[in-house]
Amino acid sequence: MTDWATHPVTAERVDDFADVINPHRRESHCWCLSHRLRVKEIGELGDGSRESAARALAAGETSFGVVTYRDSVPVGWCHIAPREDITRLAASALIRPIDDLAVWSIICVVVRGGHRRQGVTEHLIEGAVAYAASQGAPAVETYPVDPPGRMDLTMAFVGTRSMFERRGFTVVGETDAVASKLPRLVMRRVLP
């Protein structure tokens, strides 16, 4: 029987997060900060490196995401945080809030290479939603992309409509952002 667990990224778990998104610890590789921080903010969080900034975020009061483990091996990452804490999303002229609800937002989902198509996203999204609920979030939003044809999943992605519909999210609007010539959706799951 497989043992699944999802935990917020903390200072103690930041290496597990890195094992999922950047196993070779390349500085130029993604540290899931492009929507979270502006370049100036990355510099303010440490020595200017993305890794230092990610470690500083992980040491904060509220995590910037969760890691899912299968049999104690980190296999998935989900960037989830209060929308207002995601600097570039909060300032976006293309993905504006649809109302005044203080939602948490999922902006990135990563399944570690060698573990894709094995049910990780189901546990990852449910774990992310549970973490947001434990922190008092009234709802979780996401902004998926449904391009025609095959999506390149070699790196991180924002997810697809069907991926989130299977997890109880419903379409509540559209953004002005465009992906593959289609407007991106706003999907939401209201929490009890």
Rank of each mutant, 00 (worst) to 15 (best):
D152L: 09
L33S: 05
E41M: 07
I95T: 13
M187Q: 13
Y143E: 02
T87L: 01
R36F: 07
T121A: 12
A58W: 01
E51Q: 13
G43R: 12
T142M: 09
P138I: 08
P97C: 12
L124R: 02
Q135L: 15
F64G: 07
R161T: 15
R25E: 11
A18C: 07
R167W: 00
A93K: 15
H123P: 03
D176L: 15
R96K: 15
K181W: 12
V39C: 04
V145H: 13
V9H: 04
T175I: 06
P183R: 14
T62Q: 14
G114L: 06
V9Q: 01
H24G: 01
H79N: 14
K40R: 15
L33C: 05
C32D: 01
V120F: 00
E27F: 01
A130D: 13
G159Y: 04
V20Y: 01
P23D: 09
S92F: 03
F17W: 14
A132W: 03
E122G: 14
D152Q: 10
G65T: 04
R167N: 07
D100I: 01
A132E: 09
G149F: 10
E126R: 15
T142I: 07
V39Q: 14
D16Y: 07
G149H: 11
T142D: 05
T175G: 11
V178R: 12
W31K: 06
G60N: 05
A56R: 12
P8M: 09
V39F: 08
V67Q: 03
A58E: 08
W77S: 01
E122K: 15
E174P: 00
K40H: 10
A133M: 10
I42D: 02
R70T: 01
